[in-house]
Design a binder for these strands. Structure first.
Length: 118
DNA sequence: TCGTTGACTATTT
DNA sequence: GAAATAGCCAACG
């Protein structure tokens, strides 16, 4: 487990409730240390690895990470049910529109900036 | 070491 | 807005 990966997990863990983050933003927060695809790989590594390392799908809120279009990325693989991520986010108050998309203008989390709408 | 693949993004048509 | 293109980096065989 590289330090870069752990940093990704730490950033994901720092996402407050009702907020989401995109792969590109995480890559930006890491100051170019890891590309957006590298972030995707980092999250892919913790999928289903419960207890395999310090970070797993239980301790890292991976469902709060989506792609730049506001769509959940787990559909692409098909290894897990697409509704899972959506349901987890809806439980936190994140609203999906008719096209299964998240309104990034409302729910995107920026460091040090807290909105309180909706 | 090499080539392929992927939970990606930004730009261009 | 959709589709194609290019750049990107880590894992895997």
């Amino acid at each position: 487990m590289s330090e870069v990966f752990e940093k990704v997990y730490r950033i994901v863990q720092s996402i407050p409730r009702r907020r989401v983050l995109t792969y590109g933003l995480i890559s930006q927060l890491m100051e170019g240390k890891l590309s957006p695809q590298g972030v995707g790989w980092a999250l892919n590594g913790l999928s289903g690895r419960k207890g395999a390392s310090a970070f797993d799908s239980e301790t890292v809120p991976w469902h709060r990470v989506i792609n730049s279009r506001g769509l959940v990325s787990t559909n692409r693989r098909g290894d897990m049910p697409p509704d899972l991520q959506r349901r987890l986010l809806e439980d936190e108050g994140v609203v999906f529109d008719a096209e299964e998309r998240v309104d990034l203008n409302r729910f995107l989390w920026k460091e040090g900036l807290i909105f309180d709408d909706v």
